[in-house]
Design a protein around this nucleic acid. Sequence first.
DNA 1: CCGCTTTGTGCAAACGTTTGCACAATTAGA
DNA 2: TCTAATTGTGCAAACGTTTGCACAAAGCGG
Lengths: 352, 352
Amino acid sequence: MSTSKRPKTEARAGRIKLADVATASGVHYSTVSRVLRPGSKGRISDAVAEHVKAVARELGYQPNSVAASMRTNSTHSIGLIVHDMSDPVYPPILTGIEEVLSPQGFAVLVGNTGYDIAVEMDVVNRMASRLVDGIFLATTRLEDPIVKRCQDLGIPLISVLRQTLSRDTPAVINDCLGGMRALTRQVLAWGHRDIAVILAPQNLSTGRERWRGIRDVLTEHGMTLPEHRIVYVEHMSADQGERAARSLLNAQRPPPEVIMCVNDLVAIGAIRACRAAGLNVPLDVGISGYNDIPLVDMIDPALTTVRMHLQEIGKAAGKMMLAHLGSEAPSPATVRIDAELVLRASLRNLNG
Amino acid sequence: MSTSKRPKTEARAGRIKLADVATASGVHYSTVSRVLRPGSKGRISDAVAEHVKAVARELGYQPNSVAASMRTNSTHSIGLIVHDMSDPVYPPILTGIEEVLSPQGFAVLVGNTGYDIAVEMDVVNRMASRLVDGIFLATTRLEDPIVKRCQDLGIPLISVLRQTLSRDTPAVINDCLGGMRALTRQVLAWGHRDIAVILAPQNLSTGRERWRGIRDVLTEHGMTLPEHRIVYVEHMSADQGERAARSLLNAQRPPPEVIMCVNDLVAIGAIRACRAAGLNVPLDVGISGYNDIPLVDMIDPALTTVRMHLQEIGKAAGKMMLAHLGSEAPSPATVRIDAELVLRASLRNLNG
DNA sequence: CCGCTTTGTGCAAACGTTTGCACAATTAGA
DNA sequence: TCTAATTGTGCAAACGTTTGCACAAAGCGG
């Protein structure tokens, strides 16, 4: 740590503390504490309370929550771990979380992993050092050493968007299964039969559930996909999507009627790949995504996708965190937030 | 605060502390501290150091940084205040900041204001209570009570993307003036003369600089814009952009040749408004944005805009923060990061 | 008017570090 | 061999809260 901060400015150094307010009001500092932190034990007369509050306000007293945390062993801060905040899925979740937690006095510590699990482990350890009251994990794998670590550390954990295989953590997730089923039914209803898919790694619950949603419906219709119509991305980005789509299109075979992508970014990449291959979307190839991130309604062609209610997910996660912090018994419930089909130009009705 | 957390889990309660490591290694806990925090005063023999480290590792010691913060009066955490993380401009900045600060042991506390200055003031006060070492402010107004507050509180502040009128805070901003000049020159070079603008509130440095960039170039060419070609948004969102554009198009006059928008989201709204009015972009009306946020290259039509190097801005801001935390004299330097013109389909060459 | 409850306030410990100071042990210089 | 410098470690205070406990004052029922 190179930053040696010895001196501090005046304002920082001469910070008003409880004792200052106390002497200025002629009471003991413990009394000030009780006035300013209602809910603590020990009743205070209204007269004193008013007076102390007035003095505190006048002196511009700002409580030192670090000191309070030290005493109470609770920082009222919670961590949010994501791979990359620039992925537009995450910010609305942060907003939802803040909406619930901020009024309760919680602050949110954001940690980006950059898709690197070593970094992620480090982030967790640092959050542990900082005594966060809980962690929201948006990177959860089906078998997850990070989850394990949090459990070992005794940090309340809530999984968002994803869930472990054993469902041993509380979680708030999108109903990927339902969403993908609805989408697949629509694809079939519109007469598509030669379907290709670009899937996420199958060590993620989202990746697995979305794929299962597709397969379920295909199976209902007595269909299965041939190997060569199934490709994977390593993580969900447009570049990865473009690469994957290229491998679908480059083969000697004719292009599929539709490419169902595991999410919108991947679908964007797929659209690029189609364009590059001289194929028109949706005339030559239909494309679908998942998430309904901002602007996919404005792209060319407007993307058919499934909307997750991300802010709702964030809010639900926030509430769940509050519940878990309050109670002793964190029942690992999994809450599913409904998904919503959004039909746009990138997928057409072959029957129409 | 409703959450009464009395009991804690085993793991949380029986946390290993310095003293535990000390007794286990047969040394005083101050020695352990010195071993684990190299750079502190007092040299330790290599033998003891190795031994203590081993014991600490074995016991799984996690330093309690709250306690350390209490002692040192420095939390190694910094705040980032934005209006709304869902605005795609901010995440890359966060990434840049983290990239620089995280390796130095800093954590980032994110605060969304929801465009509400009362909330914003509250966020600042809470960050002050939490003893953040510094604050990045991305909401800076030309005359800003928030900046004033931070100065009163003695919290090191760095303005990002925006700057105060008096330039009394260190800041890292995009070169809006240069960027907008370049764009305007291009617009003129391509033969557009009937130009309309959708501007941001003029109490923001970005709003004012971008407008000045346009005016400068127009003035160079002996042009000025008539009142009815100038409209404003309250803040930078697609909805606001759509409203503003509507008011430009609804008038009895013919539509302008080009609408220059203060940023991409606003431009998106303007495109929507044009479509709704039955106007083709770019054939009937050209549109430009600013920022080059993700996906504007994919929308219909692809948006002509100016790229800010957001992650660079974040990194520069992070470095600047480190510098200011280190030194006594925070010279309020303003760093400008170059902008880059990005020409796409939404603006056409009338001469071509 | 007496004991008992209630109410309001002060006292002091504790939270887990960091670090100035003291001091013992070792090394070096002459 | 003696003094002086150096090195390694222990001691204890301090950081600013919260909160259990003690206790005085006041209210009250009989």
